[in-house]
């Protein structure tokens, strides 16, 4: 029960923290005063809520409602396998990493459905483009996660944390965390991997969304950013492990650190054309994830 409350609190705090960090980074990059950006997320949210909802012609109503809600649920489901302290997780199942993988795969489905359901060209292009980039990015993350599971000899997230008592996976498998961060950018539709909701498509999959729908979609993206960051912190940075401070505090600190790194990448790195990104994914990054897997295997046998 405490774990469930902790998950909900972390999600709420993560949405606020992510929105603020985004606003501050945007202001800093553009040279605007940073102080005003600190409160702007609330103002923007209130503005979005006060806008009227737009209806497109013949939308797929069911999926239009379901897509943002499912995105939010997937973030919570991903967080549910993360231990806040030894044994303190909502579901401490032995297949935690596989469950997270299923959440990743379903994010691609949800983003496609969000683009599909509006029955408008730009959202559909966004959803379509996202599937092409999102699926290989997800494959890479699965290999990297298998690598992280090797030293733990288990697919359970708790066991993966315990296997990092001597050395964290970010050091033990140096390719793992950078490759996993790419997935984070992809499933939260951010910066260089934002092929679904990008500005060149006027907002992509949520181009036709307004009002509460738009707000929910934005919040769900930030919730997924929180869930992903907590996962990266757990699998590669040792999760709740640390001295002096209690376990949950360490997890929150490491999660915030990963979030800040992702926000920085979002606002500092440009996006390349989808075709070029697809080539890089299949010819450079996927082989790199194989290297990571071999590395992890050799290191685990040592």
């Amino acid at each position: 029960m405490t774990a469930l409350i902790a998950v909900l609190l972390l999600l709420a705090a993560g949405i606020w923290f992510g929105a603020t960090a985004d606003a501050v980074a945007e202001a800093a990059v553009a040279g605007h005063p940073v102080r005003a950006a600190l409160t702007s997320p609330f103002r923007r949210a209130a503005l979005m809520l006060s806008r009227q909802a737009i209806a497109t012609e013949h939308p797929d109503r069911l999926n239009r409602l379901l897509a943002p809600a499912c995105y939010l649920v997937l973030a919570a489901a991903g967080l549910s396998v993360i231990p806040f302290a030894p044994g303190m997780a909502v579901t401490d199942i032995a297949t935690g990493l596989v469950l997270w993988g299923a959440c990743e795969a379903l994010v691609v489905v949800v983003v496609f459905l969000n683009g599909w359901s509006a029955n408008a060209p730009l959202p559909l292009i966004g959803g379509y483009r996202y599937v092409a980039i999102g699926l290989p990015a997800m494959l890479i993350s699965m290999f990297v996660l298998i690598g992280a599971a090797l030293p733990a000899q288990s697919l359970g997230v708790g066991a993966v944390v315990e296997s990092q008592r001597v050395l964290i996976n970010a050091v033990r498998q140096p390719l793992g965390l950078p490759l996993f961060l790419l997935l984070g950018l992809s499933i939260t539709l951010r910066g260089p991997f934002d092929y679904g909701d990008s500005a060149d498509l006027a907002g992509g999959t949520h181009a036709e969304a307004s009002g509460a729908h738009r707000l929910l979609w934005r919040a769900a993206k930030l919730a997924m950013l929180t869930a992903f960051s907590a996962m990266a912190a757990t699998v590669f940075l040792g999760g709740y492990l640390g001295t002096v401070l209690p376990g949950p505090a360490w997890l929150v600190l490491k999660t915030a650190l990963v979030m800040l790194v992702l926000v920085a990448i979002t606002h500092l790195v440009a996006r390349v054309p989808p075709a070029r990104m697809l080539t890089w994914l299949w010819t450079v990054l996927l082989p790199l994830s194989f290297v990571d897997l071999v590395w992890a295997g050799l290191e685990a046998m040592r």
Partner: peptide, 12 residues
């Protein structure tokens, strides 16, 4: 869980 994972990708 592997079925959920695989089918999400396949049906996509």
């Amino acid at each position: 869980i592997a079925t959920i994972f695989m089918m999400a990708v396949e049906m996509m």
